[in-house]
């Protein structure tokens, strides 16, 4: 996991498998930054994610639910096709915004602030 924080925006480049083993680490990593550094936009780059199941999806949805009441949001970028298929079945793309690239995710919504 690669981390970068800039102006209340946390960028995480995730890798490997997002399952019950890694879900808890990811949850803590994001929640810490929301609480301590007042991060309000979380961008998750999933390019190097090889696998996701409902435990991984649950952490992403959980962070969305935590950020929304704080006026924040979560954005997902670079999703591999086979990972997107699982996400789609969960309905997550109906709630969370997906982008092709990190740049596109950063750009969107910036003017509104």
């Amino acid at each position: 996991m690669e981390k970068n924080i800039e102006r209340q925006t946390l960028l995480l480049r995730l890798d490997g498998d997002l399952d019950m083993k890694t879900a808890e680490t990811l949850r803590q990593a994001i929640d810490n930054e929301i609480e301590r550094r007042k991060v309000r936009t979380v961008i998750l780059n999933l390019e190097k994610v090889q696998f996701i199941d409902s435990s991984g999806l649950g952490v992403i949805l959980g962070r969305y639910k935590k950020l929304v009441p704080l006026g924040g949001k979560i954005k997902i970028t670079n999703v591999p096709a086979h990972v997107f298929k699982i996400m789609e079945l969960s309905g997550l793309p109906k709630i969370i915004d997906f982008y092709q690239t990190e740049a596109a995710a950063r750009e969107e919504g910036r003017g509104a602030q």
């Binding site: 399952d19 019950m20 696998f51 199941d53 409902s54 435990s55 086979h82 298929k85 699982i86």
Partner: peptide
């Protein structure tokens, strides 16, 4: 096919995670 293997992995992951969690 690769696609089916991905599906098998998700199904097994869910069943095994449920047993533990």
């Amino acid at each position: 096919p690769i696609n089916d293997i991905e599906e098998l992995k998700v199904a097994v992951s869910e069943a095994v995670s449920n047993a533990i969690i």
